[in-house]
Design a protein around this nucleic acid. Structure first.
Lengths: 70, 70
DNA sequence: ATGTGACTTGGAGTCCGTG
DNA sequence: TCACGGACTCCAAGTCACA
């Protein structure tokens, strides 16, 4: 299974669960809105520091973003 | 806790557990020897595709690399 | 067998927009 | 609200020589 796919799905899942738009979430994470969009569309391989920023903004443990949900 | 630190520690931990040198491990992961060195010394913020390569070479689940061990 | 500085280049990440 | 594109900037990727 591709980690980028798992990551993308999880970001989308947790983001919608807390009811944030891509835009609002991007701002909370300190990242760009088009970047979040690209991530969820699996268009980019993201770096670790931003992985942490995203996990922080989602208010979850970092490793959860890599656990495949089926 | 810094994710890069956790990641670095875990790479080192799992790598030594299976008894591989940085050099042998780098080759198995398809990465450069000095690159592995830099990662374990927390000198680089690495991207997701390489995280997966490393997890594959360590023969562990990807998320384990982000679980903090104390 | 590993740490480290320096280097080039491809892609991560930003910012403008449109439908 | 989001997908997607073009044009950037800058840092991670990948490699080298040397300690």
């Amino acid at each position: 299974m591709d980690i980028i796919k798992v990551f993308a799905n999880n970001v989308k899942k947790y983001r919608t669960e807390i009811g944030l738009s891509q835009e609002a979430f991007a701002e909370k994470a300190g990242l760009h809105r088009t970047y979040i969009s690209a991530i969820e569309r699996e268009k980019r391989s993201i770096a670790l520091d931003n992985v942490q920023k995203i996990a922080d903004a989602l208010e979850i443990e970092t490793y959860l973003l890599f656990v495949e949900v089926k």
